[in-house]
Simulated scan of single mutants.
Amino acid sequence: MTESQAAEGALGEFLRDRRSRRSPAEAGIVSYGARRVPGLRREELAQLAGVSATYYARLEQGQSANASVSIIDAIARALNLDDDERAHLHDLARPARTGRRRPARPDAARPGTVRLIDAMADVPAVVMGRRTEVLAWNRLGHALLAGHVDAGAPARPADRPNLTRMLFLDPHTRELYADWDQEAARAVASLRLVAGRNRDDRALADLVGQLSLASDAFAALWARHPVHNCLSGSKRFHHPEVGDLQLEFEMLQVPDDAGHRILTYTAAPGTSSHAALRLLADHCAPPAVPARPPAPHPAPARSHA
């Protein structure tokens, strides 16, 4: 299967899934008789969107790659998509790039971004690439999310941890999240959105393929085509060193076109989670450098009478 065919397949898959979730009653359509499948029929959705049934069928089958913005918006309204789903539909409907591409170079966090997270000594912080690979982390970010992994691994492209791969395939990471099912659904929904924006990213497609083969849980979630831009929220951790924590996360976009993001975690002051985070920071702090003793003062010179 070519990348263009894969992109067209993703568009049809998304449209069929969301069409199956939209009931005739919700759409204001009077339904007569039994239905073989749930949701709207193709011709019903086409009518709601103001396009011909033939045109919509071709779109869903991946045979119309130049749908206008207005048509995609009309279909999104007919499906009652939210903002993230609407943006994702536009990404999938955009014509795929053609022609040969240069091999992707190993990604790297900008030095200034690394210095920024290193300066955040009391805040766990991770710099992620668009494929959720760890490009850099500060001491506390490493201690919170992957203390069992070599702290220097993000500097080696071949050994870089990947947060999504670890979530589904690493037992230590699975035990870390108290609400693993929720975290897994959130990770797949975010990755779906990124995959739609970067349909020509071979490494990202390889990651999805590997996880689909290695994890039944990932494959089942991916097939449901969830889409959500996870920018903030709350997560519960069961950390092997400091116990239970409830932390607020923020996903900050680095202002360039590399797709890098900074993931940070904080706890409300005065809570047990805040105390646990401070304790973890103490555990991973660099050893104190002993102060040098003051240099002895030179003896005063004797005067000769």
Rank of each mutant, 00 (worst) to 15 (best):
T2Y: 00
T2C: 06
A6G: 10
A6H: 06
A7K: 14
E8L: 11
A10T: 07
L11H: 09
R18P: 10
R22H: 08
S23V: 07
E26P: 08
E26L: 05
E26K: 01
I29F: 00
S31W: 08
V37A: 03
R42V: 05
E44H: 03
L45N: 02
Y56K: 03
L59N: 09
Q61T: 00
Q61M: 11
N66V: 14
S68W: 04
V69I: 09
I71M: 05
A74E: 03
A74G: 07
A76H: 01
A76K: 01
A76I: 01
N80K: 14
N80A: 11
L81N: 01
D83C: 13
R86T: 00
A87L: 08
H88W: 00
H90I: 02
A93M: 05
R94F: 07
R94T: 10
A96E: 15
T98P: 08
G99V: 02
R100F: 12
R100Y: 15
A108T: 05
A108R: 07
A109H: 07
R110T: 10
G112V: 15
G112A: 14
G112H: 13
G112Y: 15
G112K: 15
L116V: 03
A119K: 02
D122L: 14
A125E: 04
A125D: 02
M128S: 13
M128H: 06
L135S: 11
N138V: 06
R139D: 08
R139T: 09
L140H: 06
L140G: 01
H142V: 08
H142C: 09
H142F: 05
G147V: 08
H148T: 08
V149M: 14
V149A: 14
G152W: 11
G152F: 07
G152C: 07
A153H: 04
P154W: 03
R156G: 11
R156H: 09
D159H: 07
D159L: 06
R160Q: 06
P161T: 02
T164L: 10
M166S: 10
L167T: 08
F168T: 00
L169V: 03
D170S: 03
P171I: 01
R174W: 11
E175D: 07
L176N: 07
A178M: 02
A178I: 01
A178C: 07
D181V: 02
D181Y: 04
Q182H: 09
E183Y: 10
E183C: 12
E183D: 05
R186M: 09
A189H: 07
V194I: 04
G196R: 03
R202T: 14
A203H: 13
L204C: 00
L207Q: 02
L211Y: 00
A214P: 09
S215G: 09
D216G: 06
A217R: 12
R224M: 14
R224E: 12
H225D: 12
P226V: 00
H228Q: 03
L231I: 15
P240D: 04
P240N: 01
V242R: 03
L247V: 08
E250S: 09
D257R: 10
A258L: 12
A258F: 14
H260C: 15
H260G: 11
I262P: 12
Y265D: 15
Y265Q: 12
T266F: 14
A268Y: 07
P269K: 03
T271A: 08
S272M: 15
S273I: 01
S273R: 04
L279W: 15
D282N: 13
H283N: 10
V289S: 13
R292T: 10
A295S: 09
A295G: 06
H297M: 13
H297S: 15
H297Y: 10
R302A: 12
S303I: 12
S303T: 11
